[in-house]
Amino acid sequence: MTKMSSLILMLVLMVPTVFAGCSSTEKNEENEEIVTQSVVASDFVLEVTTSTNIVAGEAIKVNGTLKYTGIQPVEVSHGKPIIRFYFSGSNEERNYKDMAYLTEFKSGQLVEVEDEFIVTKKGKQNLLVNTDGDISLTMNPIEILVK
């Protein structure tokens, strides 16, 4: 092998290594962990995503989705919102509407509900999630560590 081909081979092998070593991955300094949990009942899937490691005084954001996986359209009577969140680490209360709303779900239809709570209590707290009305889905509590 000539010196020139050795030099080219060395450059070809080193350049990707240099770029790989320089790639940056941002890591949250507070070690924030995002968790997604789901529960299935009948033709519905309830999925919730939230942070499980948060600091008191900050807001915890929760995102819930309810997906209809059945084939035939179905009418569901429910309150508003259809997905409800309860967080033990906050003094905030929600005034959910229990009046009957009627929604026709079609195959693949997705309903998304977002909420946030100002965190006031430290230690291990729980996020409880359920659906309202004809669809009875209750998720196991999600443990949230508040520092």
Rank of each mutant, 00 (worst) to 15 (best):
Y86F: 10
E104V: 14
I71N: 14
V15I: 15
E29F: 07
V35H: 03
V39Y: 09
V146H: 01
V74C: 08
T50V: 06
G89L: 02
Q72D: 13
L13A: 15
K27W: 05
S38L: 09
F105H: 04
M4R: 13
G21A: 14
E143C: 08
L46K: 02
P81Y: 02
K67M: 14
N28R: 12
S77F: 08
Y96A: 06
E26I: 11
V76N: 05
T65P: 09
S6V: 04
G79A: 05
L102N: 11
Y68D: 05
V119D: 02
T49R: 06
F19D: 03
S136M: 10
F85D: 00
R84A: 01
K121Y: 00
V111L: 13
L137Q: 05
I8Q: 02
F44L: 14
V74P: 00
L128M: 06
D132W: 05
L46T: 06
F87S: 00
V18R: 13
S136T: 09
V45A: 04
K61A: 11
V48Y: 02
I8R: 06
F87T: 01
E75A: 11
E116V: 00
E33A: 15
V111D: 04
L9K: 09
D43W: 13
G70P: 03
L145A: 05
E26H: 12
N140T: 11
Q125E: 08
I142K: 01
Y86W: 02
K121F: 00
V74Q: 13
I8T: 08
E26R: 06
V12T: 12
K121A: 03
I8D: 02
S136F: 03
L110N: 12
F105A: 04
L66T: 01
T65G: 14
Y86V: 11
V15S: 11
P16W: 07
T2F: 04
F19M: 09
L13W: 08
T17H: 05
V40I: 14
G123R: 01
I142L: 12
N63E: 15
R94V: 09
S24Q: 14
K3A: 10
T25P: 02
L11C: 15
T138Q: 10
V35P: 00
T69K: 12
V12F: 14
K67Y: 03
S23I: 14
S136R: 08
K80M: 08
T2V: 13
V12H: 03
S77T: 09
L66R: 05
I142S: 00
I142T: 07
V48L: 10
K80E: 09
L102M: 12
M99F: 13
I83K: 01
F105Q: 04
I34D: 05
Y96T: 01
K80F: 09
D115G: 03
K80H: 11
K80C: 03
H78D: 00
E104P: 04
V39M: 11
E116W: 10
N95L: 07
N140K: 15
D43I: 05
E33H: 15
H78S: 06
S38R: 11
G70F: 06
